[in-house]
Computed example of a mutant assay.
Amino acid sequence: MSDPEPCPPPSASQQAAFRPNCHDAVRVGSWSEIQELLFAESWVPEIGRYRSRYAYRGLSDAEYPLETTLMRLGGNYAQLERHLLRNFRKYAHRRVVERDSVWHWLSVAQHYGLPTRLMDWTYSPFAALHFATAHIDKIDRDGAIWGVNYIDTHRMAPDLLRTQLDLEGANVFTVEMLSEAVGSLAAFDRLSDTPFTLFFEPPSIDDRIVNQFAFFSLSSDPTLSMDRWLADYPRIWRRIIIPAELKWEIRDKLDQSNITERVFFPGLDGLTAWLKRHYSPRS
């Protein structure tokens, strides 16, 4: 499977209004160009500040779909979801969650590697760049960064959930907000006959979530991949292709900016992962 023909990249003067209007990707040609694209549309005139409204996800291989770990489990995964979560709740220590709600449990389960319908995103375009370039075994493949406008995404959510956001004056859900609105995954899935997606922030379980500026996407249909859902809404997302020949330059500049495993994965595991990659020869 190969990437489709890319949309022509916008000029510098078009960056502020950049919105892809096709299902293709913009292929960058330089470090400076990727910075312009990542921070396009970040000016918010109402507050006079630069505040991007995009969730970012970096992929080391541009061919990877936006599939959840639950989907990658295979088999009858949609039916297995409730069994996975039920047994995680049964065997995990109660003190691993601050509140006994399905949204807290889902967040903790995703964080510790249980297959779930959640998908990891970040507010930070540099964190996404890190994950798109950190795997040196994929350094010879084009990478990609997806960006999804969570404000526009939430405009398509059911009334109950949009009202909850409006009452809080928030742009993104929290686990507490979801707990107040919907008590179970089954009830969440029944809120609309049309599949919808939302973004929510997990509790600050540990420094990894904090340092990665992480949050999750959640679909009302566990069998619908994010890229398939986005295909029907081309104006709320962007996809930037990082050519393989640019990856070493981007990687070295991120390292010099302290955007590394040592920061995103505090502890000896992150330290050794950073050192192994940092000192690997360029072959």
Rank of each mutant, 00 (worst) to 15 (best):
V108Y: 15
A157L: 15
P4T: 06
P6R: 04
R190D: 10
F131C: 03
W121Q: 09
Y123N: 04
A62H: 00
P8Q: 12
T122E: 02
M71D: 01
S107G: 09
L80H: 10
W274D: 12
G113R: 07
W31H: 07
W146C: 02
R282S: 09
L254W: 04
D206I: 11
Y233T: 12
N21H: 12
E33D: 08
L185E: 07
P20C: 15
S192F: 08
A157K: 00
I241F: 03
F213Q: 07
R99F: 12
M226G: 09
F173H: 03
S60G: 14
R239E: 00
D142K: 02
R228Y: 07
R162V: 14
I242C: 05
S192N: 01
G267P: 00
E46V: 03
F188N: 01
P281E: 06
H278Y: 15
T163L: 05
N76S: 11
I136A: 04
P243R: 04
W274I: 13
G267E: 08
Q256Y: 13
L114R: 10
P158K: 09
L246C: 10
N211Y: 04
V97S: 04
V175E: 04
T69E: 04
I34L: 08
D100W: 10
R155A: 08
D120F: 09
Y64K: 08
N211G: 05
A132E: 00
T194C: 07
S101G: 07
L118R: 08
D206Q: 08
K138A: 10
R251N: 08
T272I: 11
S11W: 02
E261V: 04
A128V: 01
L160T: 14
S60H: 08
F213M: 11
Y77I: 12
K247F: 02
W121R: 04
E180V: 14
G58T: 05
V182F: 05
M156D: 13
F188I: 14
V182C: 11
Q110Y: 07
C22W: 05
K138M: 10
A157N: 11
R235G: 10
